[in-house]
Computed example of a mutant assay.
Amino acid sequence: MGAGPYGLSVAAHALAAGLEARVFGQPMRAWEWHMPRGMLLKSEPDASHLGDPDRRYGLDAFRRYSYGEPIPLETFVAYGKWFREQTVRDALDESTVTEIGTEGGLYTVALSSGARVRARTVVLALGFLPFAYRPTALAELPPEVSSHSSDHHDLSAFAGKHVAVLGAGQSALETATLLVEAGAKPRIVARTRSLVWNATPSGQRSIISRTLAPRSGLGSGWRSLVWAEMPGTVRYLPKGARNHIVRTTLGPAGSWWLRERFDGAVPVTLGVRLAGADHRGGVRLHLTTGQGKVETLETEHVIAATGYQVDVGRIDILDPNVRRRIRSAGPTPRLSRTFETPMTGLYLVGLAAAATFGPAMRFVHGCDFAARRVTRGLVSQVRKSA
């Protein structure tokens, strides 16, 4: 379920393993329609490959980029669709999945076309959209004046408007920059006292630098190397340690290439917490400073670029009984070494798997590892039922 980077990668591996597999969803839909036009990927080119068994269809097979060269969103979407043509082909059905339940020992998948499919196994590759986090302080605002950053592709609709962007990560900083370039009047509002920017990457590094801080798909450093290239090890750590790693690895920061466009163009209000909001002709955000003083910021719209919080209870295409069973151990269940949930034959990949396998699952870089592990589990399931 899902035809983004993780869904397509799992399908490519499953089909190559000789399994009868079908993929449901529009290829790269979330990337194409829920990220802002003009966006550039923060991930390096060598960390932006989808996964196929022989590693023949990486990004560099579609278009080569040098280290430190940002990839346009449109190019990455086109790459994903090309990858689908090379690997998944006729196994893709662009119907929307409306419900997943169980019947007679099999999973039943209801489609928007009216068809129903039965399967021994189901892989949920739902990406980030089901888990968009909106601060509770915005709950009383109507949707026409309050949204999440993933709600927008075309920011030109905000031309001439004052927009408060909540957050201090790449999504917030780039959204604000693109809003300025679309003719809007954005302002960053964040708890942090200062913005963090990634350093300009260097293609030439000394032997000492490469030894002390090896480069990986999640940046430089030995810890990043382990989380990026050996995510299976994260699963064996205590839950508290896993949560800490996911929460603190690659925290909120802006890309080096964005800073010149942002500085001087976007005003910022930092060191404040959002205490509440109301809508009386316009939006009023009530902010608490570090000294406990309450200030009010008036704007016409607020965009929460506040990231994503995984809770499998929010996967609404799952039948309530299925949802209840996989959530019984908490909002982010610990998965098996092949990404299987507490329900036999039901797998979770991508962001939803980060609590088990670490921060690599938050990024495209984790596709290949997840696809290989899941396919191993799928093959095992077929053999057991044969």
Rank of each mutant, 00 (worst) to 15 (best):
A353Y: 03
L73Y: 01
H153E: 15
S385G: 10
G104V: 00
V77W: 03
Y67V: 09
G58S: 09
H49S: 14
G350I: 07
S48R: 01
P143L: 13
Y67M: 07
V302I: 08
G221T: 10
R37D: 14
P238C: 07
A16I: 09
R242V: 07
V77F: 04
V246P: 00
A157G: 10
A329I: 01
L351M: 14
N198I: 05
R273M: 14
T175N: 12
T200D: 13
V322L: 14
V268Y: 03
G276V: 08
R327N: 11
L287F: 10
R84D: 11
V312Y: 02
T288D: 13
G290S: 09
T341C: 04
K185V: 13
L346H: 01
I71A: 04
R116Y: 01
Q26E: 15
V349W: 07
R273E: 15
W31K: 00
A176Q: 01
K161N: 04
F262Y: 15
R84E: 15
F363G: 00
A91P: 07
A353F: 03
V180I: 15
A14R: 02
R235D: 11
G282K: 12
E229C: 10
V266N: 00
V272Y: 10
S9K: 00
A139L: 08
V310H: 06
A14C: 04
G58N: 07
V234K: 02
F131Q: 10
R191A: 13
W197I: 10
T299W: 09
D368A: 11
R22E: 15
L8C: 01
H286C: 03
L351D: 05
F131G: 00
V226W: 10
V163G: 01
Q26R: 11
Q170D: 15
V322C: 02
Q86H: 06
R210H: 02
I188M: 10
A355M: 02
R280A: 14
T289V: 11
A125T: 04
F262A: 08
R362S: 12
M35K: 05
S9L: 07
A253L: 05
E174P: 06
L378G: 02
Y133E: 13
F62G: 02
F24K: 02
R223I: 13
L179C: 02
A352R: 01
L111W: 11
L348E: 06
A354T: 09
R29C: 08
G290K: 03
L270F: 05
F131R: 04
A115C: 01
A30T: 03
R235H: 08
A139I: 04
T341D: 01
Y107W: 12
Y308F: 15
N243V: 14
P53S: 10
F24L: 08
L179K: 03
L225G: 04
R191V: 12
A14T: 05
R242L: 13
A184S: 14
S328R: 11
L225M: 12
T306H: 12
T233Q: 12
E20S: 14
G232T: 08
V189D: 05
F62V: 08
P186H: 13
G18W: 08
L237P: 00
A61Y: 03
A305H: 09
V272N: 00
L195P: 01
Q86K: 14
H148Y: 07
S220C: 09
G350C: 11
R55E: 15
